[in-house]
Amino acid sequence: MLSWLVDPWTWGAWMWRGMLSVTLVAVACAVLGVFLYLRRMSLVADALAHVALPGIVAAFLISGSLSAPVMLFGAALTGLLATVGIETLSRRPNIRPDAAIGIVFTAMFAAGVILLSTRVQDAHIDTHCLLFGDVLGVSDRSIWLLAFVTPLVLVLVAVFYRWLSASSFDPGFAKSLGIPVAAVHYGLMTAVSLTTVASFEAVGAILVIALIIVPAATAHRLSDRLHLMLAFAVAHGVVSATVGMYVAIWIDSSAAGAIVVTGGLIYAAVFLFGPRHGLVFSPGRHCGQGLGPEASSINALEG
């Protein structure tokens, strides 16, 4: 009866490898995505995923190698460059921040496309794979990369949790405490760059953006506590990855596409029926807590 669940695991190592890589991708993306979302920087993930391309190509041209460290280093470097570029532009009085993001990342991405089409035709850079991923044919290198990057991201977030949360909520106050807010920001951006590069082979440069944004957006509709939001985001990512993999296998579609569509459908369900701000019903606030905000303000004045 459950053969449709179990069988794919017996068809070969690719199922295990695919599932392992998308899970690792989903976890790292979800955790970083929550902080990007809370900083209203979701679209910066889009930018960073795109500027990794010129980073990887440039690193290859300089070093002649496509080894994992070279790729990570190249992408981290162009990621930081793009972050600095976007901020420098945004700070000018007459430039809108959203336009700044669009200008910087498209220009850098286009430069990458030119380099790729003129200078490195002979290299083994598969543009299609880079953009759309190939979960079922994921390489050993990619799995090792993820096995390194995802735990690294989790450890860094755990270690710098106070700095991340305080500087995301109130950067001015965080600075007054001596928290290096700018360093935290660049650190987060670098982590996003590394994660997108590690995720390329599995889900591609375009759909990785969805795995960063959608889990966080879903989680915020489910909880108003940061640690729970992180847990819900990871759960959303892992569930979408798993369900998406099965869907892809049974309807023979692109795995990354199925994963992202599944994630989008979960978001839609939460949007409609979720406990916080759900459109159809929202029982939590009215029945569960008893007092609305108005009642509580009266309480406070009396207390």
Partner: peptide, 10 residues
């Protein structure tokens, strides 16, 4: 007004 009061903290 300098912070986002929708931030998920108590």
């Amino acid at each position: 007004g300098s912070v986002d009061w929708d931030f998920p903290v108590t």
